[in-house]
Computed example of a mutant assay.
Amino acid sequence: MTHPTDTDVLGEFLISARSSAEYRAIFALTDTDLRDRSILDCPGGAASFTAEASELGAHVTAVDPIYHRTPAELRTLARVESDRANTWARTHSDRYRWDWYGSPDEHHRLRRIAATRFGEDVTANPHRYIPAALPSLPFPDNTFDLVLSSHLLFSYADRLDAEFHLMALVELSRVSRAQTRLYPLLDHIGRPRHELIAGLRTELHDKGIRTEIREVDYEFHHGANTMLVLHAPGTD
């Protein structure tokens, strides 16, 4: 087992530029999940998912506090953060499985493409990108068919406490008509958060929110091959 070192201090939250293909793998998304569905991506970061899924007929809204910046600033940020994310992964390459991407170079190439696509879409369709942050979202109850959330909750458990996680999960479920899917269930160093997740699932159950852990066909961090699914109250 590795122990955290000074190089494990990530600093600022990473603004990741993930592609639609990554989202499909991370969240086990099918065409049916996307076509003509209202979807929330929170936090959206610099992902190209909103742009690409919208081309398939989905109605996607991305939420992130970074969206208060201008499109030009966001385009630059997406490129810079893609480089930082790839450098982080290369520095800690032993913690990752590279088979989905093929190599660190291909990982970097795909992320730069996604960053460019994000920059184009945030310029052309700024209405899709809402500046807001968990645990308080500016939407009525049951707004979205599907809510997706990756690489914030659990990933940054070193700085977001259990109370924040619970408030954020309840809020994500509030705006969902059916399902909320969260990935990964490890922190950014690769440590499982079993105790935190077990406690949260108990509290969510007490609030009428059914949960399950589901395997996905994606694993970048070693052991990160599951997602947490929240079922909105009143759904099967």
Rank of each mutant, 00 (worst) to 15 (best):
R181D: 01
T202M: 07
R75P: 01
H127Y: 04
C42L: 11
G119W: 08
L77G: 06
L56Y: 02
H59K: 14
R177Q: 13
L29Q: 00
V9R: 15
A47Q: 04
R159C: 07
V147D: 00
A46G: 14
F164I: 01
I130M: 07
H222C: 05
L34K: 01
R181P: 09
L110H: 09
A132G: 07
T5G: 15
A133V: 02
P184Y: 03
T87Y: 02
H127N: 09
L40V: 06
L110V: 12
R79M: 07
A46H: 00
E106T: 13
R181C: 10
L186I: 12
P43W: 03
L10H: 11
A62L: 05
L185D: 07
W88R: 15
R109Q: 13
R75E: 11
P233Q: 03
A58S: 13
A46P: 00
I130K: 05
E22G: 08
A232W: 01
A133G: 10
I130P: 06
A21R: 12
L230N: 01
A21P: 00
V175F: 00
V9C: 06
A28V: 01
D8E: 10
Y156N: 07
F144R: 13
S136D: 10
R210S: 14
M227Q: 15
L153F: 06
L152R: 12
A168M: 04
L169C: 07
A58H: 04
F49K: 06
N86A: 15
R35C: 10
E163V: 06
F13Y: 12
R112V: 02
E73Q: 15
V229L: 05
R174H: 11
N225H: 13
A157L: 06
L166A: 08
I209R: 09
A115M: 05
V229R: 07
T87R: 14
Y101L: 08
D83N: 11
D6K: 10
H165E: 09
H3I: 09
W100L: 08
E73A: 15
H59L: 12
W88F: 14
R111A: 14
I197K: 04
